[in-house]
């Protein structure tokens, strides 16, 4: 019954492994764009969204995955997705993740501005790199900024785009291999979490966005996530889906 060999699966699916690595790198870079504030931000004492990287990455990634899964079902159904389908599916996933992350930032900002009563301000730059607005006078003494100013918002949207793109790409690549939505999505979540947690160690839990000095550490995360995604990809493409199990 088991005519599927390890070497054969590797030789046949090398394209999917490359796709999984690309997806993993998109996720890793995306994490650096999202303004993660952690616990200090939850108390309006730091710029960014008031929760951890993993929660944000998982939230936007899963929303993106849902959007991508729906698009996959609509476009490809049970047949194998073509390259143009994969592009559309990844774009849908990216938009889904962007919607989730921007809504989180928008509503978070409402809470910071009207609830806590603080003006959004970045402590890392004196002037907002996008709008040119002065930031330093609005940072409350003893804090490192509050809320989500324009530059962080734009950065977060880019992060959502990259995260959703990467997650849906990994999902599509796994669907190519095993054709089983359940196994593909749970593995996509696994690859997603590994590639979201490693970069979050790189930024040590908090970052404001692409204008933050910590953003310069991206190359280290890319190297680490390349190796981690390669491992995950090699292992993940060797797992058969239900169609390969002879309709079991």
């Amino acid at each position: 019954m088991s005519d599927i060999t390890v070497i054969g699966m590797l030789a046949e699916n090398w394209g999917s492994i490359i796709g999984i690595i690309l997806g993993g790198l998109c996720i890793a870079v995306g994490v650096h764009f999202v303004p993660v504030g952690g616990a200090p931000a939850a108390m309006a004492q730091a710029t960014g969204i008031g929760t951890g990287t993993v929660q944000l990455a998982a939230g936007s990634g899963l929303t993106g995955l849902l959007a991508a899964g729906y698009m996959y079902m609509t476009l490809a159904g049970v047949s194998e997705a073509s390259i143009s389908d994969v592009v559309l599916i990844s774009a849908t996933g990216a938009v889904g993740a962007m919607i989730m992350i921007t809504v989180t930032m928008l509503v978070g900002n409402w809470v910071y501005i009207y609830g806590v009563g603080v003006p959004p301000a970045s402590a890392k730059k004196d002037y907002d790199p996008i709008t040119g607005d002065s930031q330093a006078p609005y940072v409350a003494p003893g804090t490192v900024g509050q809320g989500i100013p324009t530059v962080c918002f734009v950065s977060g949207a880019i992060g959502g785009l990259l995260g959703g793109l990467g997650g849906s790409l990994v999902y599509c690549m796994l669907m190519w291999v095993n054709g089983d939505p359940a196994i593909s999505s749970i593995f996509a979540i696994g690859v997603f979490l590994v590639n979201a947690v490693l970069p979050s160690y790189n930024i040590q839990g908090t970052i404001e966005g692409f204008h933050d000095p910590k953003f310069k550490r991206v190359p280290k995360a890319i190297l680490a996530c390349f190796i981690a995604s390669l491992l995950c990809g090699i292992v993940a493409v060797m797992i058969p889906g239900i169609p390969a199990l002879g309709g079991a």
């Binding site: 952690g38 616990a39 951890g52 990287t53 993993v54 929660q55 998982a58 979490l193 590994v194 979201a196 947690v197 490693l198 979050s200 160690y201 040590q204 839990g205 908090t206």
Partner: peptide, 10 residues
């Protein structure tokens, strides 16, 4: 630096 949950998810 990232909170304990991250490592469980990893």
């Amino acid at each position: 630096g990232t909170g304990v949950p991250s490592i469980g998810m990893l």
